[in-house]
Design a protein around this nucleic acid. Sequence first.
DNA 1: CTCTTGATCTTCT
DNA 2: GAAGATCAAGAGC
Length: 200
Amino acid sequence: MAPASKPVRPALGKPLRRAFFARSVHDVAPDLIGATLLVNGVGGIIVEVEAYHHTDPAAHSFRGPTSRNRVMFGPPGFAYVYRSYGIHWCVNFVCEEEGSASAILIRALEPTHGIATMRRRRHLNDVHALCSGPGKLTEAIGVAVAHNGLPLDREPFSLHARTGPVEVVAGVRIGITKAVELPWRYGLKGSKFLSKPFPV
DNA sequence: CTCTTGATCTTCT
DNA sequence: GAAGATCAAGAGC
């Protein structure tokens, strides 16, 4: 009898260095689609993100630094984690340059690594719903306020560039009431792991 | 399938 | 006091 086949796991691309994030959020955000995000070895392929620029009324940094958003005002390549609706954690990647206060919200992953761990943390079996939202994925990969301000190029974080071409789609952002018309949500075309489908 | 509501932390008015 | 970069559960269709 042949041994049971193991789940196929795509090869990881080269590690993303801090310089990767030292560019406009509008350049970094689409480049993150197809990259792999792991925290302590658990995570998956980034399939949905949103860009927030300091000149954008919907950004947490728009009105200046607070104790919550201070990491956004620091150098690029660090994690900004905040509490959402008093319940959930959401994780952003700080971009551009120190003081720019621009970041990218990670909104959905296609689970590839540590799926059993994610199912346990989420008390959920359906792999399509494990990481299909910013608050869901932080619970699944174990991100909380302790990760706020940590560098993205060292453990527990591990980020890897995509290994092949991807088709990126853009649309309006989700759940905001200011600057609602700006098309700064980016996703992997046709992915079944999005928080919401992109309009056709 | 859609719609409504509760959970309850941080910031702003 | 109200709103917010959310989610899950329950009611109704």
